[in-house]
Every structure is written in structure tokens, then in C-alpha cells.
Design a protein around this nucleic acid. Sequence first.
DNA 1: TCGATTGTCTAGCGCTGCTAGGATCGGGCC
DNA 2: GGCCCGATCCTAGCAGCGCTAGACAATCGA
Lengths: 192, 192
Amino acid sequence: MSVQERKQRERADRERLIVATARELAEQQGWDAVTTRRLAERIEYSQPVLYSHFRGKREIIGAVALEGAAEMAVALRAATSAADGPRARVTALARTYLDFAEHNPAVYDAMFRLDGGLAFAKEDTPEPLKDAFAALLECLGEVAGNGVDPGLFTEVFWAALHGLASLSRAGRLPPGDAERRVDLLVDRLAMI
Amino acid sequence: MSVQERKQRERADRERLIVATARELAEQQGWDAVTTRRLAERIEYSQPVLYSHFRGKREIIGAVALEGAAEMAVALRAATSAADGPRARVTALARTYLDFAEHNPAVYDAMFRLDGGLAFAKEDTPEPLKDAFAALLECLGEVAGNGVDPGLFTEVFWAALHGLASLSRAGRLPPGDAERRVDLLVDRLAMI
DNA sequence: TCGATTGTCTAGCGCTGCTAGGATCGGGCC
DNA sequence: GGCCCGATCCTAGCAGCGCTAGACAATCGA
């Protein structure tokens, strides 16, 4: 028994190594540089080993996305629980979200720009994704306003944040006014 | 002289053919299916011909993006000029933007998701992109509210629309409530 | 009519994601 | 203890990718 357990543990370790290495490489040089050959070389195994853990590159991206979603949920909850009052909470949430996107661009890409083969807004959506949305909902639900469905409001607010994050990162928005854009967004959207 | 003119005209025609074919193929089968080989085959020339018109695939994507930006600007202006009153104009603008993204997904990808090698928010930004932003600004400037920079407001509103467009298209938002999300966004962001 | 220029194609380079099939290693049984 | 068999891993290779060098043909000016 213990031999099998050790092997399973080693396999799980290696899987984590693959995901962590893919993420690291993507943050360092972008997802285009994450090829199966380079990834295999970095983990010091041959390419086919990757395919014994994941169906393909897409699933590796998906794994990084899931990891990122879990981290983002933690960060969002930490930020909101440290703030006093609805307004401060929403502002902290927005800034944390955008900070996360800015400081983990490859992970954010894996979550939202690339195809990681993950199901969204469905029953079989993976738990970390649902939980990240829940973290948004917990904070934003209380400022949705009367007669507005909290879920719908969260979707809209999230979309606005995602728009700011992705347009900023792609250089589609002037870089200087990020703070002012966040303030405007919070002022207008949240009913405080 | 007339021979040279004919050749230039034919060259320009072929360039348009390349862009139109790339766009068509992308809309039919997605940008992944737009390979230089397939594209060359469809225009009935060999691959190197593509490179006599464009530096590479990226520039072809950029050309499609520019074409799309011009069309979007036209559509936005048509929609806003047909609506009466600020509120109706903003709603029409938002719906037209999202409709464009939904009905021309490949073009929208070329504009905002893929790298077409275009400069944004800079001096050397191509004219069609500036003009599409101007079309947004013309409508949104009048509902920015007191003391709010129209440009900044337009950026935020645009980001929200882009967020809704890209999250919807990627299946990240439940498909049924699109109208309600637009209404909520317009209600809250625009000062009417 | 000849040389130069322009235009186009064939063929191929180095890379990609992915996989078939052989070698090797280690646990379980006699 | 020694052998066998299954699990594990690697080498080698496939088809396709973006892109380009160099050969070839067509056309223009003299």
C-alpha cells in the first residue's frame, strides 16, 4: 500500500510542478513561450509526461487559471474584510482585482483571455471559479441597490473591471488615469 | 503610365481580397483556422504573395481590425443619430456596440483580443481607431456628468461595454440577461 | 530583340502540439 | 533470491505552423 501511496504523492507533486512551471514561464516570457518542449525541459522530463497528466496544453492553461481563481478569491476576501464600510469595501475590491490582473498578467490571461477549456456560468463550472465570483458577490451584493438583482449587478461590475483590466493591459487605455477610472466606476455603479 | 496604374489597382484589389478572405475565414472557422497556407489557397496565390502585402499574419489581423473599427464607427454614429434624447442615444450606442461584437466575433477579436500590432492610445494610433473612440466620445461626452472629464468617462463606459462583450462571448456570463445588464449599466453610469 | 526588372512559385527551415512504439525499471510472486 | 510482468518514461517522428531563400517566368524599356 505505502508504495502506491508514495507513487501517487510523487505524481501529484509532479503535476503541481508542471502547473507552477507553466505559470512561471508564462509570467516571465508570455504564454507564447510556453511550449510543451520548453515546459518539459524545465521540469526535466520528456514531453509525453505532460500528456500523462493533462490532455494537452489547453488543460495546463486551465489548471493555471483555476489556481489563479483561487488566489484571486483569497485576495479579494482579504481586501474587503480589511475595509470599513460598503464604500471602502467596494473600492478595495476593485483595486485588488485590478492589481491582481496587473501583477499576474499571465494568470489573468489564462483565466479570461485564453481558452483553458473551462466551463463558466454553468452547473459544471469548477469550484474555484464559482468561489471567485462568490467573493465578488459577497461584497457587491450589498451595494446593488433596491430592486436590482445582486447577481446581475455583480456581473455588470465584474465586466467593467474586466474591461478596465484587459484594455489597460493591452495598452488600449492611457496608463496614468487608472485610479481616477476606478473612482468613477465605484462612484457611479455602487449605490452607497 | 496607365499600365502602372492598372498594376497598382490590381495590387490594391488583391490586398483587399486578402483582408476580406482572412475576415471571412475567421468568421467561419475562427482565427486559429486562418493559416497562411489556407489563406493563400483561398485567394488562389502562393504563400509568399501574402508577405508582399503584409509583414506577417499579425499585420493581416491588424488590417481586419482597422476595417472593423471603421465599420463600428459608422454603426455607432448611425445608431446614435437615429435616437432622440441623451438616454435613448446612450442605450442605442451600448446595444449597437454589443451587437457588433456579437455578430462580428472574429473582427472584434482582431480589434481587442488578438495582437494586430496596432498602437492604441498614442499619437500614432491609426485613424480608424481614433475615429471609433471619437464616435463613442461624441455620444458619451454629453452624459459624463458635471466635473467629469468626458474622455475619462468614455474610457470607463467603453471598458464596461468591452467587458460585457468579451465575457459574454467567452461564455463567462449567462446568455439570457444581456438586455438587463445593458439597462443597468446605462442607468448607473450615464448622468441623465 | 535583348537585358533588366518585376512578379510569382517551389521548396525548405525551424518551430509547434501531439503520439506511437520501444526500452527500462521496480514491485510482487514462486 | 530470481524471474516475470506491468507501469513508466523516452526517443523518434508526424502533420502542420509562420516565414523566406532562391529559381523561374513574364513583362517592360532600350
